[in-house]
Design a protein around this nucleic acid. Sequence first.
DNA 1: GGACTCCGTATACC
DNA 2: ACGGGTATACGGAGTCC
Length: 790
Amino acid sequence: MNQLIYGANQEEKIVAVHPASERTVKMFIRNPEGIISNEIEFFPFFFLSNQKYLSDYPKKHWIKELTGENYYRYLCVFNGWLDMWDAIRHCLERYNENAPQKIDSYTEMPVLRVRTDPVAQFLKQSGRTLFKGMKFDDLHRIQLSIKTYVKHGFKISNPNREEDRIVAIALSDNHGWEYQITGKRKSEKEMLLDLIKVLQEKDADVIEGHNSIDKHIHYLMTRCEIHGLEFNIGRDGSIPHHSEARSLYGERTANYIPYEIVGRHVIDTATLLQSYDSTKHELDNYNLEHAAQHFGISKVDRLYISPDRVSWYSDNEPDNLVQSSIDDVREIRLLSDYLSPDYFHQTQMLPFNYATVTRLNSNNKIESLLLREYIRQKHSIPRPEIGSQPQIGGSEIFYRGLLGPIIDLDIESIYPSIILAHNIVPKNDTLGAFPKILNGLTDHLSDLKRQVKIADNSYSNVTSEATEIGLKVLINSFYAYIGNSRALFNDYKAARTIGEARQDMLRQLMSAITSLNGKVIEIDSNSICFVPPVAVNTETKEKELLKNIARCLPSGITLQMNDRYKRMLSYKKNNYVLLGYDGKVTIKGSSLIPRNIERFGREFITQCISAIMNLNFTSVHDYYIDCNKAIVERKLSIQDFARIEILRDTYDEYTQSVNRGDRYRSASYEVAINSGMNWKQGDKISYYITGDDTSIKGFDQYKAAIDWDKNFRDENVGYYLKRLEELAKRFASLFSEKDYHALFSVDDLFGFSPEGIQIQTTQIKEEPKDLDEETEQIQVEPRIWLDEEI
DNA sequence: GGACTCCGTATACC
DNA sequence: ACGGGTATACGGAGTCC
């Protein structure tokens, strides 16, 4: 087993670790008889650049001088957690004695480096990790959903309000067990007693919920207190508590407060979903209904009850309320079945508790692996190099227009290949751990893929596709780590080397594509979109093509397809539309549909795009006519043409900064003031344009939407017609002038005919051709930039 | 008074 | 605690003609 990846300590079946006292942690270990707990001593520590900051520190401590020349040369070790905090304060005082600028917090103190998470410290210093020798299915996971009553007139249920209460609880687990506690006949106290009993008996390792599970635990705890009950569901009989690290963070307001339950883990599937989607960008929101539909795990005719409707269902249809909660936990389980194996798997490697791993970014994960190795070898660690990441190769667009079919090729994985091929080591990584860890992880990913292949391309109960994606994300982050200003082992020069090598590789890749008669449309930091040659017209042939392209590249680069599409409307950098083989139209970027657009405009553009993607020009023209008519004949409703903006500042903030000349007056605030609106920060204002001057002068022509009267319509028809023209202009670059005017005009004397109308493809930038030719061309004349318009 | 530019700010992408 | 840098758009004011 690779110790750099899994830690040096091979102890298996550790299910959870929690602080037990100032100087001990409790490990919960699964053995054939059940869970046993084990209290072990650990020593809080931090890194220090110079011993002098700890001079005269009265309590017992050890200072170990580390090998090597790196900045943090001393490992300071203490007898207990509070002693360590005392020492941190001691260092802070010492530091401030000579500091040009006094600082308040240890986090700003450059000479000291500490992670204030005792479990992470323990795991790092002992080389242990959780879940070794376990499969994902060995974890006993319970899903929990509660429904809460809201007093009439209020929107959010408040556990401290007398009238609010829990009215339904649903539970399930990964062994197929389901359980419901209804408030139909039971008092809330009886419900809670039942819940506590069940949770204790089931003795699960993980408690899962969707969306602010921590808030639910908080709710349950508060209600328990009110009823004089103890919510003692910890494996040691303790009640949930906030992590020590968090409470010491001070006033920083996090939007969630993670709860710790001793011996167990609290996992929020919405958090998992969010980080899953941070690379995929497939979901619009992270609520359970949307997620379940996205993954196709939603039951037909299943009833979703939003929090503000719970009271109604509780009063009128309590059985449906319970059924809905049961459906909730089923979906949470299925969602977790898919998303959690990734985190389970990473927890086997990383020196953190399971729940912590779900909240960490890639940088912290990578750094934890590096630090664990440096601690093991008792080697000094560097501080971050000052500077910023050199920027290399932004996005490029080569063609505008409608093109297809499309192959979307992953180019992120080029980074790790380059780091390994060039054996890039950050300059302060004296032990060379960085490439070794990266290598270990890529080997591990290959193993994983091999296993999946052997299992006939299906993911077993051990893993899921998300595991592979998660590991890939981590591997692809190694380049970002090197260029990160806060990374201890950062190295901008190395980052530049990698970036330049990647640019070379991309040039080779692009010329390989063009020399095989493909057409590169757009390239961004993550992917290349290109049209394969005509003969490549099936998925199998496309995959074959990728192999041929890879042959033109330096050894060992495998190309991976992100996705394939029927057509793509390339518009501007990072602004495009995709038509999938399932007919789904995806619009990306804010350039086609900008923010603040009126609803009629959004609908008009969306409809036009959809029609354009399907080459249905008659519909494009019809949409234009319809929209034009609706404006002229005053058929639109206020919601269609009103503009909505958020008032971010208070009245005083706005007027004062205008008076000071710090900012200009703006329509939204002027309307709010003129209409006598009494707003709070973050309130929305909806307004429209009145009068008959098509160009707006002053703020008199803005009017609040609530003052609009459908019997005395005064919206500015001329202005909104002009607005429609502006919106249509987005499509001007896609058509010839003649075609454009035929499509987007009402005066078609001879009737509209789609005959002959076509979308123009414009080359915006020259594609890289064969490498040798290209270098010659550059020597003869500089790269030609074609004008965007014809 | 239209067309243009400049600038601040907001948002979405990767 | 942690996604930050970049591309794009819009509104308002100033400037030119």
